[in-house]
Design a protein around this nucleic acid. Structure first.
Lengths: 265, 265
DNA sequence: CAGTGGTCTAGACCACTGG
DNA sequence: CAGTGGTCTAGACCACTGC
């Protein structure tokens, strides 16, 4: 029998589906993709919180009237996108930036020598946190209108006492209403973890544009390097569900004792 | 029945396998992983050349006495690692750096405005190509002994007439015996494509370490920027089968009109 | 021991490609 | 039209976790 979730917008085409209307076909979508979309919707709706287990594959198969293998393939893709984490014998869990053994999931800066644990945790200092109106480029990056309220944060990360990262970040005002410098300062753990628990914003993926620039006087003071020192400029846009941009971050990295590491496939 | 490829070193443990010897278990390996390893061996042995089709899933299933689904899962992983490319209705093909619509698979430098095609193909100039003995750091990167013969190449890539990338690369002397400046200069297409066709060396993955540095006088002249200009320093090690390093490449990128793009998941 | 994810099968059917 | 990859199923069994 042809499988089809009748209540779905994009159903599986069994046989007599083609030749519909005129323009570009019905966009055939496999069952497991539809299941994936449904699970994604539940994740986004917060049906299961970060760190919690989602229903077992058998349960989900029963719920969607589908075989375990189909649910499995849907979850496989979610796991590949790091939206969920599989743990054999235990279950499948909603991924979280908190309580993860990798502290900074999106930070690719590593010490030149030794493993990342050897230098211990980073020291963090919040320099500033203020509300303002989005400039043209910030608005474009965050898919807002120029003049919309945004939050700007400036902070410094130090490793082994050496200031290494100076970053400014901009957040849309609406979702992050109530975020203050004090709240940021008192927080332990990754900033993205706080975003999850306090504001319900999950960062799922990000894009970075990297350049080499020269430190200006102010940046030099903050990073304790002479003006003109080459620094890595890392502009990141982080996205949540539906590819909605939720953070613009401009970082300056000292690369005299650290390097940005990337793997190519 | 328990499936097992008796002629394989690491067979599937059916039931009575545990408690063997003493130290760390028998390292259970699923069937599809064993199949993957077998296909990998054939790829490495050159049983199918880059660009050619490998046998169909059904054929491989028959050859290995395994179900199609198991072969499929093995090929899935090979495709994920970009060792192989699937094309529905046609077959599965050995991946190649040549004739691929993406010209430079490992190059992440993009123009700030417009798509990569807008500036047309890069102009390439070979500055140097000589044999020498590996220094300590080159030897370490290429898993050679200091003093082993290596090939050093220096070239410049220009986009729209502007010199943008200056790179030195080191290749182990043995596999690349016969490579000359003339051969490099007359070549069209990606360098990795030439490595494949002429020397049978397939680059499968790479790691990059990125830093910001200041151009020295000589580099400034070659890239047509003032000495002291911040440049992106990109050190790449490219690997072939068995994670064997086959190339060390040190690139300097101008980032005034281009940027290094990275996607984080 | 029950429950979970992980593997494997045999068979069916679908979508896509090319002759 | 035959051949290929792609999807889906129902059921079996294995490996791992925790009670």
């Amino acid at each position: 029998m042809a499988h089809m979730l009748s209540f779905m917008p994009a159903a599986v085409g069994s046989d007599a589906d083609g030749a519909a209307a005129g323009a570009q076909g019905p966009a055939f979508s496999p069952l497991y993709q539809q299941i994936k979309a449904l699970i994604l919707k539940s994740l986004q709706a917060g049906e299961w919180k970060p760190g919690e287990a989602i229903p077992s594959e058998m349960d989900l198969a029963a719920r969607f009237r589908v075989s375990q293998g189909t649910v499995r393939k849907a979850i496989d893709e979610l796991a590949a996108g790091k939206l969920v984490v599989r743990r054999q014998g235990k279950g499948t869990f909603v991924a979280t930036h908190a309580e993860h053994h990798v502290q900074y999931r999106f930070l690719k800066l590593l010490p030149d020598a030794g493993d990342p644990t050897s230098e211990g945790p980073a020291q963090r200092a919040i320099l500033d946190c203020k509300r303002l109106r989005a400039s043209a480029d910030v608005a474009r990056a965050l898919a807002l209108r120029p003049g919309d309220p945004v939050l700007q944060v400036r902070r410094i990360l130090s490793f082994a006492g050496t200031p290494t990262i100076l970053e400014d970040l901009w957040l849309p005002g609406q979702p992050f209403k109530g975020l203050t410098a004090a709240r940021l300062a008192e927080d332990q753990g990754p900033m993205y973890a706080l975003f999850e628990t306090e504001f319900g914003v999950r960062m799922l993926r990000a894009e970075e544009k990297i350049r080499a620039i020269a430190a200006d006087a102010a940046q030099g003071v903050l990073l304790q390097v002479p003006a003109g020192t080459p620094l890595l400029s890392v502009e990141r846009i982080a996205y949540t569900y539906n590819d909605a941009p939720m953070e613009l971050r401009r970082g300056l990295y000292r690369t005299d004792t650290h390097h940005y590491r990337n793997e190519l496939n």
